[in-house]
Design a protein around this nucleic acid. Structure first.
Lengths: 153, 153
DNA sequence: CGCACTCCTGACCAAGGAGGTCAGGAAAGT
DNA sequence: ACTTTCCTGACCTCCTTGGTCAGGAGTGCG
């Protein structure tokens, strides 16, 4: 139930690309790496994965670089996380809807389904445009408004 | 963002213990392992962790076994997951409230906080008693009622 | 007491993932 | 031709996952 460095890096780099969408020229990997303090060579692997998933485009050579394949308000955080981490909220590497629980754990499946749904409610609502502008969807505001949400347990 | 086998096993075993709370004698590890089809020796390690976290108690010898340290309606799924997996929704192994994001990713922190809060909303609401009875809290019903929640993406 | 039973503990192990680095190749521009 | 930048695969170290194995220590019973 943790977020990997890769996913964190991927979202941050994508946020930079979203912000740069106005400029009509691609952004170099080096600039992304510096802006977000991410190891360059590792970042390029991540960007390649995003490219393979159709989230990002790239061109090589002088004046080359990366840019978003779609408008920033059509790319969700969920997409990016899935591109680099795989499916969200799998249990033992299988999707919760495929698991059959026995005995007194029979209803555990519904709990894991609910967990996945609640993650989706956040991650699929937030777009890169939201992230860059800081105007996050209502659900994020609701969830973060409680003081409780900001303390560890 | 996945649920480990260990966490899944731990919750299932705990559910069996919750159901057995009426019988006034401890439950053997072997019986738990068979009821939930969990490798016995692995399960005993897990039960030991739960014991160290004060969730479970145990006695050895003939007529020994495990039982819940508290009533089943006072033990949440969140507690069990934390006992075996550690803190929920950490990013790069640090809690989201301790991370400082720069540049265009500045608001990413709020997103991860919201992710954690939404997980807590589910995992801290569901108790072992809920799980065994099948009468899950309202929030779980809300989240699982949509057909959408049951399909992969 | 002695013994069977059950939990308790640490060591170990194979496979894979996390989080990178390195070296070289292939397109694009000038 | 040459530089720039992405593209790709190989490699690396450390840690986690999902276990197994061997033995020790407490508990109850005859």
């Amino acid at each position: 139930m943790r977020v990997s460095a890769k996913a964190d890096y991927a979202v941050r780099a994508a946020a930079e690309l979203a912000a740069a969408q106005a400029e009509e020229s691609p952004v170099k990997g080096e600039r992304l790496a510096e802006a977000q303090d991410i190891p360059l060579q590792f970042l390029e692997h991540i960007l390649l994965e995003l490219k393979h998933h159709g989230i990002v485009r790239a061109r090589r050579g002088a004046k080359g670089g990366y840019w978003l394949a779609r408008p920033a308000d059509e790319v969700t955080v969920a997409e990016i996380v899935r591109a680099v981490e795989g499916p969200i909220a799998h249990v033992q590497s299988t999707p919760p809807e495929d698991i059959e629980y026995r005995g007194n754990a029979a209803h555990l499946q519904e709990v894991w389904i609910a967990v996945r749904a609640s993650l989706r409610n956040v991650l699929e609502e937030v777009t890169l445009a939201d992230l860059v502008s800081g105007e996050l969807p209502e659900i994020v505001g609701d969830l973060t408004s409680s003081k409780d949400a900001w303390v560890a347990r």
